[in-house]
Design a protein around this nucleic acid. Structure first.
Lengths: 284, 284
DNA sequence: GGAATAGTGTCTATTAGACAATATGCT
DNA sequence: AGCATATTGTCTAATAGACACTATTCC
């Protein structure tokens, strides 16, 4: 290919080297030869895993899914569901697969059960796993309407733990909570912080309830995740004033076993971000 | 260690298996034997790299640092500075090292030049690198007062490109901008979006100016990153009403070569998050 | 003086927070 | 009736957006 000296800000060529299917199209014979001869063994040995922070609300409490480790290291401690990324799969695919394998949970695509999953952060401190160098990509899932988790391979049991029973500082035993394996207390802490923050400016709270839901149920999601009591009337007013957050479906139903006026039912709207946001009032 | 059958929510033990230096303390002889015999070769081969999105403001434009690739693949295209994570270093350390090696930039610890670095996201699509499976942990750096970048190993040249000249959809040639290598257009897009969002609710805008600065300079940061014009008087009022955002240092200086009343000078305050936030007005 | 930038004051529409009053179901 | 929850309305303080006016410097 004929090329002159490139100016600092000049264009180089006008077509992408990436095909529609994501594969690479070499731009020259020399590049094709280079790729054919490339030796993939000349890199530092690192294992890549995914871990998933599954948050859901049970009995009014924000809970995280943990599995008890049946193997060394950290045998008997509780860990996030996760495992190796296989050579062919994307990171997000690996997260979904591990969730199904280790905890028996299929992420709902649609329907009554709601769900959301996003990448959280990556943890790669050299000493975080005593076996070898492990870089772990953590995902955050917010789910509702889950069946009781069932333990899978390598896990003694799976259990939803209230996050307030977990020592998020160092993962050690804290009165009534679990001991956490590896640096999973850090990951859980980051996931809980992310969820708390995103409830302010996104519509993710609807991932914690099954549609159709009442505004009272949605309010109790905020109260469980934030750990505060919200003003009932103002909450309703603000949610309904936020365009696209929820849309009414018309029906009504008794709100609780204890009686009370039946509440209007809603389903999630189109909005992803909330304008204006629902701020936590005592912000700090 | 004597242990009974563990109840579902019962405590297991009351001391951490993590030492203060981060190394692991096995809880039993069996676990020690397991770790000594562990074979680290039984994992899928993956390379882990770091890439850094360095954003800074030059001539009123938000710019990103790119290096021209001197080697295959994507030779001649522009890429984010980055490279392999070595076995002993943390991910964040690797990001700082690559920035110094590939672009000649040392992240300032303190002083007039300002800076911030944080983890952005991790990219691990199986086909993103034609050589082999590469999982790349991207970092986002917001810097000011940088020297002209110098190219390092494996890079033809380093250059700050205005982000508006870059095709963030697929990285191909876009009139006057660079062709981007790999999936780096996605990473740049995510970094720019993160920076734009965080200017709203954090004090990170001060990372883009050198202290001491005027409120006019700080406003021009917001205008460059968001690409909008802000109301001058209301900006001043809101910044000064946000506790801990900036603190006056008393001195004044002419604001530009073209004249005008000298402005009060400020330095960054203690606040990390802004309460209340500085919202972009036309928010969608 | 004119241009350019900075700082202060003020008016109005909107919003947040608090609270009162009413509606509708359960036991 | 008494309790529990939902819905509507209203009052007030705070905030956002817009704009007028003054201050200080360079040309």
């Amino acid at each position: 290919m004929v090329r002159g000296v490139a100016p600092v800000s000049g264009p180089r060529r006008n077509e992408s080297r990436q095909r529609a299917d994501g594969t690479y199209r070499p731009s020259s014979r020399a590049e094709s030869r280079f790729l054919a001869a490339y030796d993939a063994a000349g890199f530092p040995p690192v294992a890549v895993t995914v871990d998933v922070v599954v948050l859901t609300i049970r009995q009014g409490q924000l809970c995280v899914l943990l599995v008890e480790r049946g193997d060394h290291p950290y045998r008997g401690a509780w860990a996030l569901p996760g495992g190796f990324v296989t050579p062919e799969e994307d990171l997000a695919e690996a997260a979904r697969r591990e969730l199904a394998e280790e905890a028996g949970l299929e992420l709902p695509v649609t329907g009554g059960a709601a769900g959301h999953i996003e990448q959280l952060a990556t943890y790669g401190s050299p000493l975080r796993d005593p076996r070898m160098r492990v870089v772990s990509v953590a995902y955050l899932a917010l789910l509702s309407g889950l069946p009781p988790p069932t333990a899978g391979e390598g896990a003694e049991q799976a259990h939803f733990w209230p996050v307030e029973d977990i020592d998020l500082r160092d993962g050690a035993f804290l009165g009534s909570g679990p001991e956490l394996a590896f640096d999973h207390h850090l990951i859980v802490a980051d996931g809980v912080a992310r969820a708390r923050a995103k409830l302010e400016y996104t519509s993710l709270a609807t991932s914690f309830v099954e549609a159709p839901f009442t505004l009272g149920e949605l309010r109790r999601v905020y109260e469980a995740v934030w750990g505060v009591a919200l003003h009932r009337q103002n909450f309703t007013r603000k949610v309904l004033a936020t365009t696209g957050f929820v849309v009414p479906v018309g029906r009504k139903r008794p709100s609780s076993a204890a009686g009370g006026r039946p509440a209007e039912l809603y389903r999630p709207g189109d909005a992803v971000e909330l304008h204006p946001p629902l701020r936590r009032s005592d912000h700090r």
